[in-house]
Nucleic acid binder design. Structure first.
Length: 251
DNA sequence: GCGACAG
DNA sequence: ATCTTGTCGC
């Protein structure tokens, strides 16, 4: 749909690609209908390719906030890949008025995430976000959306399905089943821990399904969630509770 | 029309 | 997302 804007004394309509030039800051006040149009517009920018270089660092990102509040607390961590040792943290808080709407998560969380991202000196080779990548009705989950805006390889790792279905998968850690949206594969249901409900992994941007599976597997320890997610979650909570200060820290 | 619905 | 105690099962 074209969008009409006032330009001087005349009204003109802009094509869909207009939405690609929206600033992240504008997400805070965008209308949900426009947010959906931006996702449709951004879809042409998705790149699902194999991670080029060897992955030496993996990042984790998460958001924490009090229910009913628009103050978002973002945390990003960077871990070395064999070993999962933390090497850097970035913490940032940011206010938004965009609500949580299934399918539009990025518009609520991305401003704060981008703030934390900007502070991060050492960018990870691939960043894992809490939420989906391609496993989204318009293939534009927060991992994909963020990856495009930051021009960064990303992976989505979610605890629940937003769209799609999958068959049974073995109960052992590492077993998987394709997550299908109709005839299209959009992700993987992955058993991240034996006898525990699976997590849902999907490529975000500049990453393949195989890469996504491998990186998530390499980020698992003894818990259901990858260490990336767990650490980011912990730091975001500490920031929210005032137990940690915003800023960038290298370990 | 009805139900589902990341965080 | 967050608020919370105990409890069932490997």
């Amino acid at each position: 749909m074209a969008r009409c804007v006032i330009w001087g004394t005349t009204t003109i309509s802009l094509p869909d690609c207009f939405y690609r030039f929206m600033r992240i800051e504008d997400y805070k006040t965008i209308a949900p209908e426009d947010a959906v149009q931006l996702q449709r517009s951004l879809r042409a920018c998705i790149s699902i390719t194999a991670l080029g270089r060897e992955v030496a660092t993996v990042g984790g990102a998460d958001i924490s906030y009090n229910r009913g509040s628009g103050l978002m607390h973002a945390a990003m961590v960077v871990l070395e890949l064999p070993g999962l040792r933390p090497v850097a943290y970035s913490l940032a808080s940011d206010e938004t008025s965009f609500p949580y709407i299934p399918g539009l998560l990025a518009f609520r969380e991305m401003p704060a995430l981008m703030k934390a991202w900007s502070q991060l000196r050492a960018k990870p080779d691939v960043l894992m976000l809490d939420g989906h990548g391609l496993a989204h009705p318009r293939r534009m989950g927060i991992a994909t959306h963020f990856g495009i805006e930051a021009d960064q390889p990303t992976i989505g790792c979610a605890k629940n399905i937003l769209t799609g279905t999958h068959g049974e998968l073995g109960v052992r850690k590492g077993e998987q089943a394709d997550l299908m949206d109709g005839e299209e594969k959009v992700g993987i249901a992955l058993r991240s821990r034996t006898n525990v409900n699976p997590v849902y992994v999907s490529p975000g941007h500049r990453c393949s399904f195989e890469d996504a599976y491998r990186i998530v597997m390499q980020s698992l320890t003894k818990y259901k969630l990858p260490r990336t997610t767990r650490l980011a979650h912990r730091w975001a909570n500490m920031l929210r509770r005032g137990e940690a200060e915003p800023g960038y820290t290298e370990v």
